[in-house]
Design a protein around this nucleic acid. Structure first.
Length: 302
DNA sequence: TTCCAGGGGTAGA
DNA sequence: TCTACCCATGGA
């Protein structure tokens, strides 16, 4: 017997769900399932009560007058704690509490590639936990997108909690689920290449309390300090740290990774060499929105 | 077969 | 701080 509950979450005045879902690839990485025709996505999630639920998130109306609709399927009764948790992670995933007013005003002033970014665009979907986002970012390094999807799928298949009988429907693995296996067993179950020790070490560290990912969400620390904390994690270099900073809602610094240099070179220097100073000057006017300005300019120019 | 992917760790300067 | 070199995996 499956219980079915629907509830609404008030979204900010300026919010665009389709843009939030498609501004990067996260929506198609397991356990997310993208339902393109409905502009919605679903995922299987463990709840505080211990039961495993399937969530489907959609927007009821067209922007700007939107509310977020969450449909919950779960085997038992949905308690207040479960409901509060679902609302909390939905707000987090969709960044409903981030204020983009200033960014949208800057986009309007700049025009060009940014002209279409008002009306609630600019958000990028993220995962309920930093552990999930970090594992996924590590799975995007030095591999093509198809490989990333495969590796994340294998992780979920091997270590996720099941929802019902459908083998496709599982949660993203908890750190302790991965940490319970020795590295060699982990490597035999999931083909992650050289990333396996990094992800296993991360899971063991988080499960055992040696790595505190909450420290990454410390809003009182400067971005440079958060970047330092990120790079202290094995497997996280310039590119991965940059991706995580954006997922953490920090756009004030653009790290000079290869992708950024290549883009700026192609876009502004006719493919010629660019030094760090020249590259930084391109987005100097964007204040704390530099990385977002760069990201969406790159998206719009594709 | 060979190459390489929006990299990163390590050793050695 | 910078540079070689190595690192597994699977798709093209």
């Amino acid at each position: 017997m499956t219980a079915l509950i629907n509830f609404s979450i008030k979204s900010p005045n300026s919010f665009d769900l389709p843009s939030t879902l498609t501004s990067h690839g996260w929506v198609v990485l397991a356990p997310n399932q993208y339902i393109k025709e409905d502009n919605s996505f679903s995922r299987v999630e463990p709840l505080p009560s211990g039961q495993v639920a399937r969530l489907t998130v959609s927007s009821a109306h067209q922007a700007p007058d939107t509310s977020i609709e969450v449909r919950v399927e779960c085997p038992g009764k949905l308690g207040d704690k479960d409901k509060a948790y679902i609302e909390s992670i939905t707000r987090h995933m969709l960044r409903l509490d981030e204020d983009y007013t200033e960014f949208h005003a800057l986009c309007e002033d700049q025009g060009g590639a940014w002209a279409g970014l008002a009306g609630g665009k600019g958000r990028m979907l993220r995962s309920p936990t930093l552990f999930e986002d970090l594992v996924k970012v590590i799975c995007t390094t030095n591999i093509q997108w198809g490989g990333t999807k495969r590796m994340v799928r294998e992780l979920v298949d091997a270590y996720g909690l099941p929802y019902g009988a459908d083998p496709e429907l599982k949660t993203f693995p908890a750190p302790n689920a991965i940490a319970a296996d020795p590295l060699e067993v982990f490597k035999s179950k999931v083909n992650l290449g050289y990333r396996a020790p990094y992800i296993h070490e991360l899971a063991v560290g988080v499960a055992g309390g040696k790595i505190n990912l909450d420290a990454l969400a410390d809003t009182s620390a400067p971005t440079a300090e958060i970047r330092r904390r990120l790079k202290a994690i094995k497997g996280v270099g310039d590119y991965a740290a940059a991706s995580m900073l954006m997922l953490l809602g920090r756009y004030d610094e653009i790290p000079m990774d290869t992708v950024f240099r290549d883009f700026v070179s192609r876009r502004y220097f006719e493919g010629g060499p660019v030094n760090s100073k020249e590259a930084a000057e391109i987005y100097a006017d964007w204040g704390r929105w530099k990385a977002l300005a760069y990201w969406f300019e790159m998206l719009e120019s594709e």
